[in-house]
Structure formats: C-alpha cells, structure tokens
Design a protein around this nucleic acid. Structure first.
Lengths: 96, 96
DNA sequence: GATATCAATCGTATATTTACGATATTAGAT
DNA sequence: ATCTAATATCGTAAATATACGATTGATATC
C-alpha cells in the first residue's frame, strides 16, 4: 500500500493519472506536451506508474500507448479505505 | 494532494496511522514500543504526519498525545476520490 | 534543588528521488 | 538502405528522505 501511495506522492504523477483518466483515448507523448517536464522525465514517471501497476502500456508502432489500470485503482481505493473505517463509525477522539 | 499521499508513502507512517485509528486512546510513546524504530525516528514521522495535518498532537505533561484528525482524513479520501470517478462510471479503456 | 522519564530536536551518514541531456531503439516513410 | 519521429534508457548532478545516536527541554517525583 505504501508503494501505491508513493506513486501518488508526486504532483507530476498525479497530473499524468488525471490526464489518462480524463482522455478516454490512451494518449502517449501528448502527456509530454501537457506537462512542463522533459520527455525523459515523463517517461520515467510513466515507468514508475507502470511498475506499481496503476497504468498499463502498449507499444503501438513507433509510439507508446498508456492507459489507467482500473482494477489496480480499485485495489488502491480499497486498501486506502482501511484507514477510513473510523470515519464511517463517526469516530471521535477521546483527547486532542 | 501529493503532499497527503506522501504521508502515506512510508510503511512506518501507515503503521502509525493504523495504530492511532485502532486505539481509541491517543497513545504517545506506545507507538515506539510497537514499531521497530528508534524513538527519534518515530518522533520524526509523527512530526511529518502532524505537518500535513493528518494527526493532531497535544502535550500532556511530560508525555505527548497524538490522535488522528478525522476531518483531514475525510479531505484526503475526497481528494483521492477524484481519481476514481472513472470507476463509478464503469470506465473501460479503448486500448491496452 | 536533584533526579528520572518522556519526547523533541540536532547533527549526520546513507539511500532514494527527481530531473535533465545525451544516446539508443523502434518502426514507419522516403 | 536511409531518414525521421516517438520513446525508452543511460549517466549523472542535485535535492530530498530516512534512520540513528546524542543532546536538549519539559515536567513530575523524591
């Protein structure tokens, strides 16, 4: 879980995930155009997102096609959900 | 949001949050006992969790009392939720 | 006031992350 | 076969994160 959270711990990667989530077409280097980062840097972030499973990649001719792995996103949401069980119970603290 | 995610990006901090969420009493140095880390390290993690608002602290005599800030947790859940709108729509990808 | 306890902070060594330019790789176009 | 465009990878510098021991600070107890 910490691993998945780490993927979300950088603004650039969140921006990438948002882009992929919004565009239904799985863009590739269009991401580079949208972000103020070098191509190699974006490629590196995409690699990390792919490594932890949050996105999938497909080599489509000379260009690459990335898209969100919604199953992994579901897992992420569920695992984070554990932390919020207290919210549903309306937990209040004894002190603080 | 990246800032909050970063707080969750380390196993020790997740462990601390879980401890605080489970025990209704706001423990302090008991956390040190539960984790295989030095006191100073735990203190540092607590400081980070406090800095991003996920936990609150109170100095109670010679000891410190920490507890979860449930409002901040709610915000975290909501902000992360943005990424999952596609899940509710049953999003499927065009490719990959 | 001296002492003990709990926790925060400091200093520091090591590891990891981040970003970039340069280079390599791949496949379509000429 | 060559050239071009889109990406991935490599090498590397700078910044940040992590962990620890040592020290400091605060408060209760003797």
């Amino acid at each position: 879980m910490a691993e998945l959270a780490k993927a979300l711990s950088h603004p650039a990667r969140i921006a990438i995930l948002k882009l992929l989530a919004e565009m239904d077409t799985c863009i590739c280097g269009e991401i580079v155009q949208e972000l103020p980062l070098a191509q190699s840097t974006v490629s590196q972030h995409l690699k990390e997102l792919k490594a932890c499973g949050l996105v999938q990649g497909e080599i489509d001719g000379p260009r690459s096609c990335y898209c969100i792995n919604w199953d992994a996103m579901k897992e992420l949401r569920d695992s984070i959900g554990i932390l919020f069980t207290g919210l549903e119970r309306g937990n209040r603290n004894k002190c603080c």
